[in-house]
Design a binder for these strands. Structure first.
Length: 487
RNA sequence: CGCGGGGUGGAGAAGUGGCAUCUCGCCUGGCUCAUAACCAGGAGAUCGCGGGUUCAAGUCCCGCCCCCGCAACCA
């Protein structure tokens, strides 16, 4: 593996970004930064973006009394700003109303095996209020669960994709991990879904039902693409798929490891529909799909009606990007839902960032100033004291267990604290054991440089701050890295 | 009988037959280099419930209760 392509999902922009998408950005960013260090920045491409074509966006714009195009541009910008304030290292941010995307989506449609796309009448129970079809099971007393109105039986001719052609192939790819799905529980879920029998799915809507918003089907202006068909192709389109540009050659068809980071709600689209579309078009598949859970707030699902949404902008303003990144990575488990609460956040901040990391850094730099004349000698062997940590991080990141990787780093800080307590340099100073103290300072200084190095993908600003400080000619006691919050 | 995952001190988790572990919080003591930080010790768990196998069960088997995903054209 010499090149690495990592993507987040592109959220539809019918509302402000919430803490859940911040989680996905931060997780993908750690992977991207880790690979940037390993492979070099030129060999990593990190994409995120926004889905502007969803019908939900049209409905949201209407509610706000704005034109759809103005509305989505404005909302996409907020998502773009979120990547900035969280210090996300993405190379690109794609919006699905851009020409490169539209042309790419059309090209993918045209590249699919023509036998896989066919026209068929679809009829279903349609709610005018929701502008969507419901299945019989979703109804409440035979009525729309949202509007409690009776549904109309609507029939429409759409294009369909012959997913059934790929049932066996998909099962084999997923079962054998050629298309690896992490965690295992999601993989099992997808295999069960496939084995249950795949039905063809519709990949277009009438222009009228789509309100004229979306990517027109090539050669048929009466239809626009089903939003998922065009949305998924963003992963190709950002690489200039429509002209098969350099990036496309380098990061999709070339020898490149391709990873999608997604939330659990869209597993099927990424693990089944998307690979099937690529198979039909004869294009390479992604290697790996990591499915994370959702962020709950105070133990409850995020919901607008409950009013418990957490605004990542406010959080970053108040506590800084580094602390928010740390919380999301450390507190939210890799494979399940995790909880956000202000109380837990403050607790993490105090115990991990202020006490463990910040305080240990302060006490060591202070001792270097006091007992070592502001100097320490870095060990010549890389990872002289921490080789196990590097391996642990590598292992945990391969499985996206960011919490465990961080725990491995923080264990080093505990090691330093214990050794300081055992050796008591301030006592040694009284008995004039200056040379012995220096050896300890050399070790601890080296270990803190290692900690900084390991933290780079997780908390890049903090890592740089620590490094700069430790590489001064004459080290003085540092200002707190993470000051206490109250009093 | 749709498919799958889970229930372990106050919270979150680890633990595939052999002394119940880790992180946070709580209590006590110690230390004074440090951001009231740090170190040591401690309290706190009938391992969802009932039965079974075994010298030995959180772990294996059977039954029950509860929670959470998925269950196809909203994204």
């Amino acid at each position: 593996m010499s090149r690495f392509y990592v993507t987040t999902a592109i959220p539809y922009v019918n509302a402000k970004p919430h803490i859940g998408f911040a989680l996905e950005l931060v997780q993908a960013d750690v992977i991207a930064r880790y690979q940037q260090i390993k492979l070099g920045e030129d060999n990593v491409y990190f994409l995120t973006g926004a889905d502007e074509n969803s019908l939900k966006n049209v409905q949201a714009a209407e509610k706000e009394g704005k034109s759809t195009s103005n509305y989505v541009a404005e909302m996409s910008d907020r998502f773009r700003t979120l990547t900035k304030i969280l210090n996300i290292s993405n190379n690109d941010f794609i919006c699905t109303t851009e020409q490169r995307h539209i042309k790419g989506a059309v090209k993918l449609w045209q590249t699919c095996n023509p036998e896989d796309i066919y026209k068929k009448f679809y009829s279903g129970l349609y709610c005018v209020g929701c502008e969507q079809y419901y299945t019989q099971e979703e109804l409440v007393e035979g009525k729309c669960p949202e509007h409690k109105t009776k549904l109309e039986l609507v029939t429409e001719e759409n294009y369909f994709f012959k997913l059934s052609n790929y049932q066996r192939k998909l099962e084999e790819l997923i079962d054998s991990d050629q298309l690896q799905i992490i965690p295992q529980s999601r993989k099992n879920e997808m295999l069960a879904f496939i084995r249950d029998g795949l039905e063809d799915f519709s990949i277009s809507r009438s222009r009228q039902r789509a309100r004229g918003w979306g990517v027109p089907v090539p050669g048929d202006d009466s239809q626009v693409m089903y939003v998922w068909f065009d949305a998924l192709s963003n992963y190709l389109n950002a690489l200039d798929f429509y002209i098969e540009g350099e990036l496309y050659k380098k990061f999709w068809v070339g020898e490149s490891y391709k990873l999608h980071v997604i939330g659990k709600g869209i597993t099927r689209f990424h693990c089944i529909y998307w690979p099937a579309m690529l198979l039909s078009a004869g294009l390479p598949l992604p290697n790996k799909i990591f499915v994370h859970g959702y962020v709950t707030v105070d133990g409850q699902k995020i919901s607008k009606s409950l009013g418990n949404t957490v605004d990542p902008f406010e959080l970053v303003n108040k506590y800084g990007a580094e602390a928010v990144r740390y919380y999301l990575l450390r507190e939210i488990p890799a494979y399940d839902d995790g909880d956000f609460s202000e109380q837990k956040f403050l607790q993490r901040y105090e115990s991990d960032l202020a006490n463990s990391l910040g305080n240990t850094f302060s006490r060591v730099t202070n001792m270097i100033e006091r007992f070592g004349q502001g100097k320490f000698n870095q060990a010549e062997n890389i990872n002289a004291y921490t080789s196990g940590t590097a391996k642990a991080i590598e292992y945990h990141l391969r499985n996206f267990q960011f919490d465990k990787a961080l725990l491995a780093v923080f264990n080093l800080l505990a090691e330093i604290d214990v050794e300081i307590d055992q050796t008591k340099p301030w006592v040694m100073a009284r008995t004039g054991q200056i040379a012995d103290i220096q050896l300890l300072l050399d070790k601890w200084g080296t270990m803190l440089l290692d900690v900084a190095w390991y933290l780079k993908p997780f908390m890049p600003e903090t890592a740089i701050k620590m490094e700069k400080f430790l590489r001064q000619n004459k080290i003085t006691k540092s200002q707190p890295l993470f000051p206490r919050l109250n009093n």
